[in-house]
Design a protein around this nucleic acid. Structure first.
Length: 757
DNA sequence: CTACCGGAACTTTTT
DNA sequence: GTTCCGGTAG
């Protein structure tokens, strides 16, 4: 390994050797690199996670205090995976050091880092947003931010934007004023890209350009409203973190917390995040970023690939290391994926290669229609399972969350367990939001959206009265007392706060203390709500005492109050109540309410996964995922479905060459998830999604990304052929397809393929 | 004021 | 199929 920077003097222990043993030379170089800014261009499947995890482990064995390392990842899942691997690397290094070179190593100068406390868990790890939230709780006061803030999710941000929009009368006069979600998109775009409104409108929302002035008023109203409620939306977390760092005193304090900063998936960061990094590490020393420009897929959210491309010029003395040996996929698969990405206009030239045996060609699978595609996928998946591939090592990927609907129904019918990533349904459901709103209101009585939601659950209480009752809280004297010992500076994943004694909550009569909801004792509720009102007040008072008990208990108490309301509100309350029980189980993991609420906003549970709880571990289940959520993951067999033009690239994103390029990279991400087997399915006939009575069917073409050049290295099969051989389902279901009136024949399909070249 | 009904317009990806 | 608006009855 020539050219390795041996800045760390102690890079010679037997332990370190083990640490590096599994890595290829370039990865080793990345792990051992010293203090200067480091950019790792890591192609798909090149062992990026391994490298980063080893680098963290290396830093720790080199004497860096884990609590002074900041690891910024794209999701919480990615962070914990990374830290888990760093720990196991550390453990191996430690074991080797003890076995081998222990005597020479002057004894107990360094305490053994792990054993009982995994070192990785003391590292600051998480998303930019989650990290911002933690830092702002600790340091926010220094810039005048109430540390008792609550975080509102996308839906609440939209509602708040909608409320301001209505109050400004923007929905009334002008019917064509953009709707609240678009408004929030524009706002968010401006904040994250740091572009002025005009530019944002011109480049991304030209149809809204005429409303620039109203939008400006709307946005400033939105900002004020958030300030009044002491709530932060996702963008605020970054904005205030950035502001915190810009403050001379507070900024210095935050900078002083960290010696090393490592950033994963750097290609998907935006201008604001880049600014945060620059403020955090002004000269780039101790900064490591990892990414792949070919996998940049979040431009729609303000991410810019310029961050990664310009990194070397931004920080003097940057070392760039490119990882291009792929350890994941077979050469046959790489041959396809390299050709797909080669069509991109602007990119780092970087073809991935592999030492693995060639493997099977990826197949382009043509299907008559969606049903046939579904049956093909299920049949082939079961075949693979017969051959010994567990379900959890297979995944079905698609562009939009709803693309898997029919597949999900079929899986359900056949009792094949699955887990779907992407599409955040759980937190989106009304009943879950209802329940969480109670907790949020207790945490922050000024949280307007939470308050309105809670109050309007009562019969006879609409927007008007809800606003009135909520206003009473604002003048209340007892508001905002969370200033106490909140600054549990404990870094890592707050594993402290173990034994909070839960006070007997059955009858907590907080009569003496004028809590934040004291004003509600005087309220004379409307007739219809009279029966429920005292219960609500008692509940809120109980949740506002100094120690309201662990979140799971709080959820139960809200549940008790909410259940009869929900039962009257929804047609089939059973499944919804089950969700609420799942929520209570979920809350058990979190020691305190603020943390629980932050988690729910920043890292909402993906429905099925957490519903079932731990036992899911020994079950086998198929993975369904949007292409976006598949980032960073890998499976033995991957099925990409709905690979038709219009789905990928999505019709919504074919406006500009940039958008199409992003869709191409997204497709590339999907394909590069596969280790051994890859199927790309394209159904040719669609039942028209929006109602267009003239033409009940649409005929699709294969995605433009599957150019002749790409197809020349792919295999080809038809779903029909497989299903004909499928003995058990063949007679019944295979027939069904043929019976369907107007079904396309294989010849039609071939013709369609040819014409789409 | 709230609760409810009918018509209209819209449907990507996510911290 | 969905949500979002405006109108109306109580």
């Amino acid at each position: 390994m020539a050219g390795v920077h041996t800045v760390e003097g102690h890079a010679k222990g037997g332990g370190l050797h083990t640490l590096l043993g599994d890595l290829d030379p370039k990865q080793q170089e990345a792990v051992l690199h010293g203090d200067e800014p480091l950019l790792i261009i890591a192609g798909a499947g090149t062992g990026k996670t391994t490298t980063l995890a080893h680098r963290v482990a290396h830093l720790i064995t080199g004497g860096v205090n884990p609590a002074r390392i900041l690891l910024l990842t794209f999701s919480r899942r990615a962070a914990s995976e990374m830290l888990r691997r760093a720990d196991s690397a550390l453990r191996r290094a430690e074991a080797a050091a003890r076995a081998g070179g222990a005597p020479t190593n002057g004894g107990a100068e360094r305490p053994p880092p792990m054993a009982s406390i995994p070192a990785g868990s003391r590292v600051w790890g998480g998303t930019f947003h989650a990290t911002a939230a933690r830092l702002l709780r600790i340091h926010g006061r220094d810039i005048g931010l109430d540390p008792g803030f609550t975080i509102i999710d996308r839906a609440d941000s939209e509602d708040l934007m909608g409320a301001v929009r209505t109050r400004l009368g923007l929905s009334r006069n002008d019917r064509r004023f953009p709707q609240k979600s678009t408004c929030l998109d524009i706002y968010s775009h401006c904040v994250n890209t740091r572009h002025p409104l005009e530019k944002a409108l011109r480049t991304h929302f030209p149809w809204c350009a005429e409303h620039a002035d109203e939008l400006r008023r709307l946005f400033s109203g939105y900002v004020d409203r958030k300030a009044e409620g002491s709530v932060l939306d996702y963008d605020d977390l970054l904005v205030f973190w950035c502001g915190l760092l810009s403050d001379p005193a507070a900024g210095a304090a935050v900078r002083a917390r960290f010696d090393r900063v490592l950033v994963d998936e750097y290609q998907d960061t935006n201008a604001l995040q880049a600014e945060i990094l620059a403020l955090l590490r002004p000269d780039g020393r101790g900064l490591t970023v990892v990414g792949d420009d070919a996998q940049s897929i979040y431009a729609f959210r303000g991410a810019t690939v310029r961050n990664i491309l310009d990194f070397p010029t931004q920080f003097q003395g940057t070392e760039v290391i490119t990882l291009d040996q792929n350890f994941r996929s077979t050469p046959a698969i790489l041959d396809v994926t390299n050709r797909v990405i080669a069509q991109a206009r602007e990119r780092y030239e970087k073809d991935l290669w592999s030492r693995r045996p060639t493997g099977e060609r990826p197949n382009l699978v043509t299907c008559c229609d969606e049903d046939e595609q579904t049956r093909f996928v299920v049949t082939r998946i079961l075949e693979h399972r017969e051959q010994g591939v567990p379900l959890r090592k297979m995944a079905v990927l698609f562009r939009a969350a709803h693309h898997s609907l029919t597949l999900e129904m079929e899986l359900g019918r056949r009792n094949i367990p699955y887990h779907k990533y992407g599409g955040l349904k759980f937190m989106e459901t009304a009943h879950v939001k209802d329940l969480v709103a109670f907790l949020r209101l207790a945490e922050n009585p000024r949280d307007e959206m939470a308050g309105l939601r809670v109050l309007q659950l009562l019969p006879g209480v609409g927007p008007r009265r809800a606003a009135e009752f909520l206003g009473l809280l604002r003048e209340a004297p007892g508001a905002l007392s969370s200033s106490d010992v909140d600054s549990t500076e404990a870094p890592g994943d707050g594993s402290d706060a173990a034994g909070i004694p839960a006070p007997d909550v059955s009858r907590s009569d907080p009569a003496p203390s004028p809590g934040p909801f004291a004003a509600w004792h005087q309220v004379r509720p409307p007739e219809a709500a009279a029966a429920l009102w005292p219960g609500l007040v008692r509940l809120m008072d109980g949740l506002s005492v100094a120690d309201p008990g662990p979140p799971s208990v709080q959820v139960e108490r809200v549940h008790a109050f909410y259940r009869p309301i929900a039962e009257g509100l929804y047609d089939s309350p059973e499944s919804r109540l089950a969700d609420l029980e799942a929520l209570a189980r979920l809350a058990v993991r979190t020691p305190d309410r603020a943390r629980f609420l932050a988690d729910m906003a920043l890292d909402p549970p993906s429905w099925t996964g957490d519903l079932a709880g731990p036992p899911v571990l020994d079950e086998d289940y198929l993975i369904l995922s949007t292409m976006h959520s598949a980032k960073g993951l890998e499976w033995d067999a991957v099925f990409v479905i709905h690979a038709a033009d219009g789905n990928i690239p999505s019709d919504m994103s074919t406006g500009s060459a940039e958008e199409i390029d992003e869709e191409r990279r997204l497709f590339y991400v999907a394909l590069t998830r596969a280790r051994d087997y890859l199927y790309v399915c394209c159904p040719f006939r669609y039942h028209t999604v929006p109602r267009r009575p003239a033409d009940p069917f649409g005929y699709a073409q294969v995605s433009r990304f599957l150019s002749p050049d790409v197809r020349s290295v792919m295999g080809f099969e038809t779903a029909e052929a497989l299903l004909a051989h499928d003995t058990d389902g063949g007679t019944g279901e295979g027939r069904l397809a043929a019976d369907r009136a107007g079904c396309v024949t294989v010849a039609d399909i071939r013709a369609a393929i040819k014409s789409s070249w």
